[in-house]
Design a binder for these strands. Structure first.
Lengths: 245, 245
DNA sequence: TCCCTTTATTGTCAAGGTGACGATAAGTCG
DNA sequence: CGACTTATCGTCACCTTGACAATAAAGGGA
């Protein structure tokens, strides 16, 4: 820190959350419709200003709860990056700290306590050409979050963050296919997922009721489960690489 | 952003830079000695407060120049993460945005314009048990920066950011060994570095004067060179993994 | 000059991982 | 029961890696 600045400038600090989930085999992002200016009527990432005495991650969790009605979100939450403070809010300088949430599909309040409508939107409908334009610089933040998620799947057990506690290999593969936007060979994926030491363990249970042969249910190994405070361990070694094309 | 907050809280925003280099085959970090409270006399990462109208990365470059006397730093600069705002500065809430600089060895002013002494310190001397204690939460930031650098070497061409424009395979290998703290097999490394398409290209020149056989000089391919604004491309595919032990 | 030391570079080989894809297994549905 | 669907196991050629031998190209000293 500079020793010269007697009274440093102060900035409002906002947290914005890129919440991703896989719904019907399609990657979705959680967005709210803004009911006030600026960008009234536009879709935006959920978020809000950090309060005094609050930590960044606390603020992210609180804003997510306020705007989506979810008190206890399971899944994986990590910091994505910071943006600004200039050129991103017409009201003036605002520093934004973005967080990335990878979570199983959860219901959102159609009208949160902030009176903003929240809902899941397919990521492709936002990022495609001629997609819906987001407020602020949220499209860039979403792109950064998507790329972070894509690369993290390669070497970390984070794909399981999109699933519940127990899941089948096919469900896990559907996560990879939805996030990467690529088809994967079911047999090779099964070999890699079940063959990686310290990644998955069988629960002994199987699915029922669906069409086709029942699938075995797996859960993450204790070693692969994200610990509070610790980053997700690099369990997939060698990594599960994205196909080139 | 929350629609409810009419006058959001404002925080001072500091940028801190984890500047790493390889010097005499040892990883060093750039630190300054604080001459004022708090943490007077302690070593700290160079950094300072963001000024109004300034971007985060601009502030990082400016503070680095002010405290180390380097106007144009070559190498790779990327955002590392944000810390706080609570519990990291005894003067009160301060949000810190950390940046990571991977650079060739450059001289630092022994007394910068901020009158803080800057110098290179072996990373191990800071992070070892009984190492020198840094000011603020800078030890955690340094650890995060080190881990980021270590993992980035695996799949990106960023090791070359520690070298000059042209370098030998052995110099590049020395970077990996210094950052990872592990010995690598010179022959297998040579095969991987020269055999990866789109990574290195020969300059045709060779080193001279040293003991032993002269080494060929290489440079990064245009595709592997970091573009302004773009992240470092994932050129090493499959990656060059750290040995397990 | 010739040998020794040092560093760079090229090969070799076995083991393991991956992509492509055939073959079975175990359910549901008609 | 037979068709269909999904899950799981096997096979095989190819590629990459780790371990390590061998060769190349300098400088230094006897």
């Amino acid at each position: 820190m500079s020793s010269r600045d007697h009274s440093p400038a102060r900035f409002p600090v906002a947290v914005d959350v890129v919440a991703l989930t896989v719904r019907d085999d399609v990657l979705h992002v959680l967005l709210v419709t803004r009911l006030i200016e600026p960008f009234r009527g536009r879709l935006a990432l959920p978020g809000g200003f950090v309060l005094p005495g609050e930590d960044l991650q606390e603020a992210a969790v609180r804003e997510l709860a306020e705007e989506t009605g979810v008190e206890k979100v399971s899944g994986h939450l990590e910091q994505l990056g910071s943006y600004g403070p200039g050129g991103r809010d017409p009201r003036g300088d605002v520093l934004a700290v973005a967080y990335l949430l990878l979570a199983p599909d959860f219901p959102v309040l159609s009208a949160g306590s902030d009176a903003e409508k929240a809902g899941w939107y397919p990521v492709s409908s936002i990022l495609d050409d001629h997609g819906i334009r987001l407020a602020f610089d949220h499209e860039k933040i979403l792109r950064d979050g998507l790329e972070r998620a894509r690369s993290k799947l390669e070497y970390s057990p984070l794909a399981a963050a999109f699933c519940g506690e127990e899941f089948t290999i096919a469900q896990l593969r559907a996560v990879y296919e939805a996030v990467w936007g690529l088809p994967l060979d079911a047999r090779n994926f099964h070999r890699k997922a079940t063959g990686t030491p310290g990644f998955l363990e069988e629960t002994g249970k199987v699915t029922a009721g669906d069409t086709g042969r029942p699938a075995a249910l797996y859960r993450l190994t204790a070693a692969a489960r994200p610990e509070p405070g610790h980053p997700a361990r690099a369990v997939l070694n060698p990594p599960l690489m994205r196909p080139v094309s």
